[in-house]
Design a protein around this nucleic acid. Sequence first.
DNA 1: CAGGTGACATGAG
DNA 2: ACTCATGCCACCT
Length: 104
Amino acid sequence: MGFEMKSSNMKKRLLRKGLTEFQADVLIKVMGIPRGETRTYKQVAAMAGRPHAYRAVGTALRLNPFAPTIPCHRVIKSNGDIGNYSAPGGRRKKIEMLEAEKAI
DNA sequence: CAGGTGACATGAG
DNA sequence: ACTCATGCCACCT
């Protein structure tokens, strides 16, 4: 609840950046993934209220203007693979951060 | 409105 | 365990 107000502001910032409602919602949900934990693209889709839009979640994360502050690196594939990462450093950096957080 | 794209999921072989 | 094809969804052109 402490970050309810924060995420509300963040959503506005994201919308101002030109993201759609869906894309902003996805990133807001991702903000709530604790350090040391991961979620799958599918789980994030469900959290955003679109259980079947897991593919579009990847498209949304790709637009994350605040990586790694919004920890999109904590979103991985359902089969355990790391998945991709478009922020600077690429997939390699994603793996490093997850290991540093002991999420893997 | 049609066609294309992508940080996915899942089943078949 | 691995590759390939197909399905799916939001978005863009």
